[in-house]
Design a protein around this nucleic acid. Structure first.
Lengths: 350, 350
DNA sequence: TTAATTTAAGCAATCGATTGCGATAAAAAT
DNA sequence: ATTTTTATCGCAATCGATTGCTTAAATTAA
């Protein structure tokens, strides 16, 4: 269906009895073209409906004003927000975004990486899939001289640019808050420990307990409680313990926390009086549930902007092989009703 | 920072004392290369860490296995879902996605279109920005021979491929449901009427009322009630009328419906007994509010898949200039508590 | 053994834009 | 009037992969 070929600089040149080089220079607005012919060229370019061929231009210039982004799921709020943040900045700079989703599968992640390398993108931004084990594909990126920025879920030992949330500190804040509210037996719903973020959140949980001389009770730590359903299932198990917890920190996600809340409500447990609940991510719905759910905001959009700015300020601008930088963003504990056992008036105000 | 140049087919050719053409043929797995040299080439390609340069390849082949997508906001659930659906299919076909967001601004939309044209994408998929007025940029796409698929928010009079929701029917279903539940004065929160989707939803509202011989009361129709805040404001106005409505159809979005719910709750109105509420989009939170909100599911992910399939089945495969097709997807009314005045047991079960 | 045919690989043009270098003409300096 | 400088513009190579055509070699047929 694409029959008519598009007009090139040669078409413009021919029509004006000029050389293509002049047309190129006029169009790139750069140098050594008289004002008269420039105007002539610009006019006929418009007349002939000329549009530059970025493929040719990029091939010649040896680079591609494009940044590749690989995320587990495009339509997961957190990642969608990060992408929106990246796009906001890259758009200003005239860069494009090529988006891939790994679908939480590392084999697909590898394919995405290869495609982006083929595309000669200027930079690859990635957040790892859940079944991450091998970082060979990340090494490949570096071998090809493509700057790599990892965010959120990263291969920690790999020396690349990183934009992270301080998951451990956020976790400490959350658990400390629970302790201060008078909860005594605090359970943890944890995620896959091959991912740094979940390891860190667990570490924060442990650190906070230890600091306040709380015992660490393995039976109160449930792994693999990622989704609402899994969170609900774990909650049932926890609440049927001889000594059940009086608070649950769903460090995996707000969805998991929602599962906790639903089970608690169904079992007639009062939240926050009899069970405190804290989620993670500040999903929109946490504000709406009754009671509203205490959670942690990750500043996702601004994380995206940070990622893009990192590229433009640290990588693109400098010509030297600069050492990778790590930017850490401190998430914010959003205190809501689901954990306010003591002081309901202490609600966070924005 | 990108100092080492990448290995090309010429590097491989030189190393094996072959011609680049043979390398190209071996790599493309096509024709006229002996098994022996093919293996040799493949091996050294791996050894030298060769990755094809898609820019050069696409330039030569005259096309680009890339589809450009322009949406108002990447991180709006509906659009994120559609994109995820598109990506799912295009990934299988080895196509890439270039994503742009117009930020609800048509001037930015125009720039996005131009970038995608420059990139020589194989197809452009677009959902229009809120301030849509002029379709010149869409015409430009066609002038450049690039297939165009509009979805959801479209320029109706333009003869292009379209993937749509049957907004009018969905609206009829919703309002009919309200009528059947015994609501007598049904208000409408409407969106910008320059967008087809909001016009259609309004038309459905009017059609349903007319069919049941309900009077159309202009004071019950509120424009510009898109967000939660605007929805709340309109609700306040509606409820302070001498004869306030007993149901509100927030045809703009679930967020607007949420605003309605919050105002109603604050004013002590019982939902659904004293006020029925229906939203649009089936956002995740509508299930969680108390009462849960009746809404309309748009099958967003499957819309994305439909879009991509339309491209591959109708456009890419056929070589003739085929006439644009319109695919309409029937949304589904999800009945929840917020409208069940009569029969609370009638809840939709999935 | 020679001719006809198939197979494998090289040659060179091409996609469209960019850019260093050189050429020409006009303007400025002497 | 002659030389020097500057402003414009053309020439041609280049980016890396693809592909039609040609040639050389190998295989088969006669």
């Amino acid at each position: 269906m694409k029959n008519q070929k598009r007009t090139t600089i040669y078409d413009i040149a021919k029509k004006l009895n000029l050389n293509a080089s002049s047309v190129s220079r006029a169009l790139s607005n750069n140098s050594n073209v008289s004002e008269a012919t420039r105007k002539l060229i610009l006019d006929t370019a418009k007349e002939l409906n000329y549009k530059q061929n970025s493929l040719a231009s990029n091939l010649r210039k040896g680079h591609n004003q494009t940044i590749g982004v690989i995320v587990p799921r495009i339509n997961q709020n957190y990642f969608a927000d990060v992408i929106a943040g990246i796009e906001e900045v890259t758009y200003q700079k005239g860069y494009n975004l090529v988006i891939c989703q790994s679908n939480e599968s590392s084999s697909r992640e590898v394919k995405c990486v290869n495609t982006l390398i083929n595309q000669h993108v200027s930079c690859i931004v990635i957040s790892l899939s859940a079944d991450f084990e091998d970082d060979k594909h990340l090494q490949t990126i570096r071998e090809h001289g493509i700057p790599l920025i990892q965010f959120d879920r990263v291969a920690e030992h790999l020396d690349t640019f990183k934009v992270l949330n301080d998951n451990e500190q956020a976790s400490i804040d959350a658990v400390t808050h629970l302790i201060e509210q008078g909860y005594k037996r605090i359970a943890l719903l944890e995620g896959p420990q091959n991912l740094n973020i979940f390891r860190q959140r667990k570490a924060g949980y442990l650190a906070a307990l230890e600091k306040h001389n709380f015992p660490i009770l393995p039976e109160l730590i449930k792994e693999n409680a990622w989704t609402k359903e899994l969170g609900a299932a774990s909650t049932k198990e926890l609440l049927s313990l001889p000594e059940p917890p009086d608070a649950i920190f769903a460090s995996t996600s707000d969805f998991s926390a929602l599962g906790v809340l639903e089970v608690a409500t169904k079992m007639g447990l009062k939240v926050p009086e009899e069970l405190g609940i804290c989620g993670y991510s500040n999903e929109a719905f946490t504000e709406i549930t009754s009671p509203s759910i205490t959670t942690i905001d990750q500043y996702s959009v601004s994380m995206g902007k940070t990622i893009a700015n990192l590229y433009f300020q640290e990588i693109e601008s400098s010509d030297k092989d600069n050492t990778p930088k790590i930017v850490s963003i401190k998430p914010k504990l959003i205190i809501r009703s689901s954990t306010l056992k003591n002081n309901p008036e202490e609600l966070t105000t924005d």
